[in-house]
């Protein structure tokens, strides 16, 4: 039980929180089952990595470029597949994310199997600048603390931004689309354009999450961005609560406490069995939560209408 361990859990919770804000916007508030979020994240993270390493960009300029590219990808995916039925849209987006992942693995521009490395010097400089400052309050020994602080500042800021957006007329139209698409269209709203904006904004959030993933693992490699990332995002979304941004934060913290905390269970089992047990516990937990509290911890039962 060390502080380092829990700081790491906090970093993961923050990154997945930012990632899942986008899913909440799509699934929770627009009724779009976007399963390609990991693909947008990969595009954001790789853009940053490639621009810094191959083109010599500053990390801080590369981040907005990564967001822009992810947004463009979101628009592209949206234009191509938003007219599909919602379950088909889910499958099309997951296929898109997998194509992105296999392209990154096989193409030359992305470093292929050897990945992208050495883009984080500027972040380390910031981190090294923060550590002495943290040392003055007795926290200098925790090297991951700067990342934790920055990730959570970003997460909270983005969470408040999303909450604010939801209260605008734009946010209300999105909710209308989720509740009844045809009625919203009948009111003269361009449903397609709104859905497209929702998807593009989610892609931008994914890119920000991807940026932090890159800083955390210091090595960009395609398998980091496999569909499991998106599945975990949906798991913590449902856990925290459907159509609730606060629920994303709570869900992410709880989910990662559970997933990583189960590492600390002491048994006399073999390492393989212990590892299996961890995921059995997570599986049982997911089954229980969806049975006992289907709307999630902070969710509202009345908000739970997503068309199949």
């Amino acid at each position: 039980m060390s502080i380092d361990f829990w700081i790491n859990v906090g970093v993961l919770a923050g990154i997945y929180g930012i990632f899942t804000l986008g899913l909440q916007l799509n699934a929770g508030f627009t009724g779009l089952l976007n399963f390609g979020q990991a693909g947008f994240m990969a595009i954001g993270a790789y853009t940053v990595g490639i621009l810094v390493v191959d083109r010599g960009w500053s990390l801080w300029l590369a981040l907005p470029a990564g967001i822009v590219l992810a947004v463009l990808a979101g628009l592209f995916v949206g234009i191509a597949s938003l007219r599909l039925r919602s379950d088909h849209f889910a499958i099309a987006t997951i296929a898109f994310a997998e194509i992105v992942r296999y392209t990154l693995q096989n193409a030359a521009f992305s470093g292929g199997n050897q990945g992208v490395l050495g883009f984080d010097a500027e972040w380390r400089a910031v981190s090294d600048w923060m550590l002495p400052w943290l040392a003055t309050i007795g926290l200098g020994a925790y090297t991951q603390l700067p990342l934790f602080i920055v990730v959570w500042l970003a997460f909270v800021a983005l969470l408040l931004m999303m909450k604010g957006l939801q209260a605008t007329p734009w946010g209300r139209v999105l909710r209308g689309i989720r509740e009844d698409e045809d009625a919203t269209a009948a009111l003269g709203k361009d449903v397609f354009a709104y859905k497209l904006q929702s998807l593009a904004l989610a892609a931008a959030l994914a890119a920000v999450a991807g940026f932090f993933v890159a800083l955390n693992v210091t090595y960009l490699y395609p398998t980091v961005f496999d569909p499991t990332f998106t599945f975990f995002g949906y798991a913590l979304l449902v856990l925290g609560g459907f159509a609730s941004y606060g629920g994303v934060a709570l869900g992410s913290v709880l989910f990662w406490t559970l997933l990583e905390g189960t590492r600390l269970i002491e048994t006399s089992l073999s390492a393989g069995q212990q590892a299996s047990l961890r995921f059995i516990i997570v599986g049982v937990f997911l089954l229980l939560i969806s049975r006992l509290r289907p709307q999630g911890l902070l969710g509202n039962v009345n908000e739970m209408r997503v068309r199949p």
Partner: peptide, 11 residues
């Protein structure tokens, strides 16, 4: 997975 390896190493 590089991310999970970090948590594992911490334990």
């Amino acid at each position: 997975d590089p991310q999970a390896a970090l948590s594992a190493t911490r334990t």
